[in-house]
Design a protein around this nucleic acid. Structure first.
Lengths: 152, 152
DNA sequence: GGCCTTCTCGTCTTTTTCGATCAAGACGCT
DNA sequence: AGCGTCTTGATCGAAAAAGACGAGAAGGCC
């Protein structure tokens, strides 16, 4: 699995907004500089997040972006889906639609299991969790396993 | 996460070899026709699997490919790594090396958890499992969950 | 040796995606 | 009106993905 720059930028921007609170809007430029993200690209991403209903925007002086929902209601999965579409695809299609001849007939079940375990992480971590540095227990169990940190 | 055509072809080819047993070699063309994979592309893939030590090749009449190890010793992860490199990357690098300023500092732990749960599937399913249609219990638990089959 | 089969390996298109830049326009507020 | 934003679309280069192709080397069989 590849986490693209775009998805990563989107998540970081969302975290930044979560940390800022909903008091006032944060400009794209502020997010760009504080997270080290190319401004033009970030604007494009924020636009997609807005269309997907993840953020609201406000133009003019003191304008910027703010979250459309409470940060504890927005998961990493929501953000990734907003900018990249489905979390997991097999050759561009849905895993459950893949069909295989003969001996590979059980393969879709493996892809489904992959997607499910992926969801088990990204659908259970909210951007508020990350911003407050308090991840759910189920995530900590995974991340605290020393095995998880070795390079394969 | 995107499962590329290449990775998918590689896995299916490996399953085909696992199903054929190690008695005689299977030609690239046979695999291509029985799995519906473009022959030229498949040859490229098989070549990479050979270099990675996953398969052995035999030229000449009745030549072809066979697995280099017992199929129950080869996991899906092995095959994917052989043709695509690391299972999970963040912007082209290792998840554990990603660094984030300020409020996003906990994000790498999320990526690590993602990778770990991904490994929990693909490192535990062997190509023998798929070829014999007998997946490990831990995978069946995931794949049998009706939630896992709904499109999000 | 001759012939057929099959892998081997490098090259070459074509297409798509990724990451990023730029510019013009629309909007909101003072 | 004027400034600071967001908005939108065009464009671009680099890279990767997917596949096509052909010449050649190796193995087996008669």
């Amino acid at each position: 699995m590849k986490i693209s720059a775009k998805a990563e930028y989107a998540v970081r921007a969302a975290i930044e907004l979560a940390a800022a609170g909903n008091g006032r809007a944060v400009s794209a430029e502020r997010i760009a500089t504080s997270q080290g993200i190319p401004l033009n690209f970030l604007e494009h991403i924020l636009s997609e997040l807005r269309i997907a209903g993840m953020v609201r925007s406000q133009r003019g002086t003191d304008g910027g972006y703010r979250l459309a929902r409470e940060p504890q209601e927005i998961t990493i999965a929501d953000i990734i889906r907003a900018v990249e579409g489905p979390l997991a695809t097999v050759r561009g299609g849905k895993p459950e639609e893949a069909e295989y001849p003969g001996v590979a007939s059980q393969l879709p079940r493996v892809w489904i299991a992959v997607r499910q375990n992926l969801r088990n992480v990204v659908e259970h971590v909210t951007i508020a969790d990350v911003a407050s540095a308090r991840l759910p227990d189920s995530i900590n169990v995974l991340a605290d396993d020393p095995e998880a940190w070795v390079t394969r």
